[in-house]
Measured scan of single mutants.
Amino acid sequence: QVLVIRIKIPNSGAVDWTVHSGPQLLFRDVLDVIGQVLPEATTTAFEYEDEDGDRITVRSDEEMKAMLSYYYSTVMEQQVNGQLIEPLQIFPRAC
């Protein structure tokens, strides 16, 4: 299952990153890619938005798994409803 992660860049749009092994993705892998997209920032975590629009911070593989399972459940709903699949949007955080 292909996963598209949209890395939101403060004040300048976003970069889409296509991942072919989504469920095996590790927290460190995401930080590495964010580091390539935002080389001047030191990113130690990132956030995503849940169904209520609240930002949830991801700082570990466990939290990463929770984010992915949340995302895959929303994708299934979108597929069932015949909607366009939205990329998983993440917001890098420099701490």
Rank of each mutant, 00 (worst) to 15 (best):
C95W: 08
V19C: 10
A41G: 14
R6C: 03
D52H: 13
P10V: 03
S60H: 03
Q89I: 10
D61G: 01
M64E: 00
I7G: 03
M64F: 10
Y48H: 01
S73G: 12
L84S: 13
D52I: 11
V37Q: 06
V19F: 15
D29M: 00
I5H: 02
Y70E: 07
D16H: 00
R6H: 00
V19R: 04
Y48A: 00
D32F: 01
K8T: 10
E77M: 13
G35N: 15
D32C: 06
I90N: 00
Q83D: 14
S69R: 12
S73F: 05
P39H: 07
Y70A: 11
D54Y: 10
L68F: 06
T43K: 04
Y72E: 10
A14I: 09
S21Y: 05
M67S: 01
L84K: 15
V2P: 05
Q1R: 06
L38P: 00
A41P: 12
Q1F: 15
R59E: 08
E47D: 11
V19H: 08
A14G: 08
G82T: 08
V2G: 13
M76N: 14
D32G: 13
R28D: 12
I56Y: 06
R55H: 07
R55C: 03
Q24G: 09
E40Q: 07
A14D: 15
A94C: 13
D61A: 01
Q79P: 11
V4K: 15
V37Y: 15
L25W: 01
N11P: 10
I7A: 01
F46W: 03
R93T: 10
D54W: 05
Y72W: 08
F27H: 05
N11F: 04
E51M: 13
Q78S: 12
P23W: 06
L84A: 14
Q83M: 09
D16M: 00
T43W: 11
L3I: 15
M76Y: 12
E86N: 07
Q24A: 05
V19G: 01
N11K: 07
V58Q: 00
S73R: 12
D32R: 07
Q24D: 15
S69Y: 07
V75R: 13
V15D: 02
T74L: 08
V30W: 05
V58K: 01
D29Y: 00
M76G: 12
E63S: 06
E77L: 09
K8V: 15
Q36Y: 03
V2E: 14
V75W: 09
S69D: 15
Q89H: 13
E62C: 13
Y70W: 10
R93S: 13
K8C: 12
P39K: 06
A14W: 11
A14Y: 14
K65T: 10
Y71R: 02
V33C: 11
D54S: 14
A45H: 15
F46K: 02
E49R: 04
K65V: 07
A41D: 10
E40A: 08
W17C: 07
R55L: 08
Q89A: 08
D54H: 14
T42A: 09
P39I: 01
V19N: 03
E51L: 11
E49W: 03
